[in-house]
């Protein structure tokens, strides 16, 4: 799978490296929920800069991660949504429930530290 998950302080940082199949999105979703529980992380950053499409399935999966983590007291920040992808998502009407957003990894960490 084209994703690496790193632990930094009490945060998890998941970097998506390439386009993902639905199966890989499900794996990522489950891994993020499991890892947050295992490390008792306070926050998760998902870097989606490499995704050239965020469709209904990816949106729903990211929302599920955020909602699940919120119940465990962890924040989820999605960073790196590309301008074209952001326009497509809003034209589609796709939202991200319980997800915080930031421009990039640096801004995402700032948001979690705040």
């Amino acid at each position: 799978m084209g994703v690496s998950i790193l632990k930094q302080r009490d945060y998890l940082i998941a970097s998506i490296q390439s386009a993902l199949t639905d199966t890989e999105v499900v794996q990522l979703r489950d891994a993020l929920v499991a890892e947050v529980a295992r490390h008792r992380s306070r926050g998760v950053i998902v870097d989606v800069a490499a995704l050239d499409v965020i469709d209904s399935f990816v949106s729903r999966s990211l929302s599920t991660v955020a909602q699940t983590n919120r119940l465990r007291g962890a924040k989820t920040v999605v960073v790196g949504i590309q301008p074209d992808v952001a326009v497509a998502m809003s034209q589609f009407g796709l939202g991200l429930a319980d997800v915080h957003t930031a421009l990039d990894l640096e801004a995402g960490l700032e948001l979690l530290d705040g």
Binding site: V79, I81, P83, A86, V87, M89, A102, L103, A107
Partner: peptide
């Protein structure tokens, strides 16, 4: 306009 505002939000602004 609404779409622009939404898209900005997705980019963290």
């Amino acid at each position: 306009l609404v779409q622009a505002v939404r898209a900005s939000g997705l980019m963290g602004a």
